[in-house]
């Protein structure tokens, strides 16, 4: 391009970008107040719109108490637990493409996933370590809430919901433990479900219902699989919805101390 030519490549790219952002299609995608919309300015009104007009952000209120934003107050533990749940959902869906919950196939599928699927090993590792991390963050979140006295009225019931969420997290992790169908999985679940057998009066029935038999078998594998990928996520999402909703309705974040 000649030196005297005024339209450089950068100018042209900028021009195209400008035209795209002026287009009706682009305008239609973003709701008013979106920072991606043309002419967005930082104003109190637009700050509200960013939250109110976005399906994801709208989980948040428009404003929060100043102390709640401090990292040292929550350490993001509740939010990270939720984020890890999303991360586990995404990696879990990936794993479901390569896994069959049957005794002859399960172990081989996991082996194949680790060796012959692109990023298979990485995603499986993320799923497993992420699950451990989620148990940890949920537990730490509960401890944080306790030390801040955030379970006190009007938040008592949300604490109960939170304990249910912790239990569901443990169950999700536990049911996932069996799925690789290796020695670790088999015997860890055997030990765990033996504990369920100690339930007074109904011990044997509880264990039978959990395992789909008197001991860990192929039907246990299928049972745990369905619990792990459908039933428990379904339940936990309902409880999470209630949990988050109550956080808002009970007056937002607790404190300050």
């Amino acid at each position: 391009m000649a030196d005297g030519d005024k339209t450089s490549l950068a100018d042209r790219v900028g021009e195209v970008g400008e035209r795209v952002r002026n287009s009706q299609a682009w305008e239609s995608i973003f709701r008013p107040g979106s920072p991606f919309k043309k002419g967005y300015t930082d104003s109190p009104r637009n700050r509200s719109y960013v939250i109110m007009n976005n399906v994801l952000y709208h989980l948040h209120p428009v404003k929060v108490k100043r102390h709640g934003v401090r990292l040292s107050y929550t350490l993001c533990l509740g939010g990270l637990s939720f984020f890890l749940f999303i991360l586990l959902t995404i990696t879990g869906i990936f794993l479901m493409f390569y896994y069959r919950p049957t005794v002859p196939a399960a172990y081989a599928d996991i082996e194949a996933l680790s060796t012959s699927v692109a990023f298979g090993s990485l995603v499986r590792n993320m799923h497993r370590w992420g699950a451990h991390l989620m148990v940890l963050t949920v537990f730490l979140h509960m401890s944080r809430v306790f030390y801040h006295g955030a379970y006190k009225p009007p938040r008592e019931f949300n604490w109960v919901v939170g304990v249910v969420l912790l239990l569901l997290t443990l169950l999700l992790s536990f049911t996932g433990y069996l799925l690789p169908w290796d020695q670790l999985a088999l015997w860890a679940v055997t030990v765990g479900s033996n504990m369920a057998g100690f339930v007074p009066v109904f011990g044997d029935q509880v264990k039978f219902a959990l395992l789909g038999g008197v001991e860990v078998t192929g039907s246990t594998l299928l049972r745990f699989y369905v619990l792990h990928v459908l039933f428990l996520p379904f339940i936990i999402v309902i409880f999470m919805a209630v949990h988050f909703w109550r956080v808002r309705k009970d007056g937002g974040i607790s404190g300050p101390l």
Binding site: N125, H127, F174, D182, Q183, L184, L186, W187, M195, V216
Partner: peptide, 23 residues
Amino acid sequence: QAPLLDLANFNLTPNPSKAPWYF
């Protein structure tokens, strides 16, 4: 690497048998 031991074997009980860490 996430652990993947040998194929599940009902006749071979590892010693010790341990539950997941949170249990």
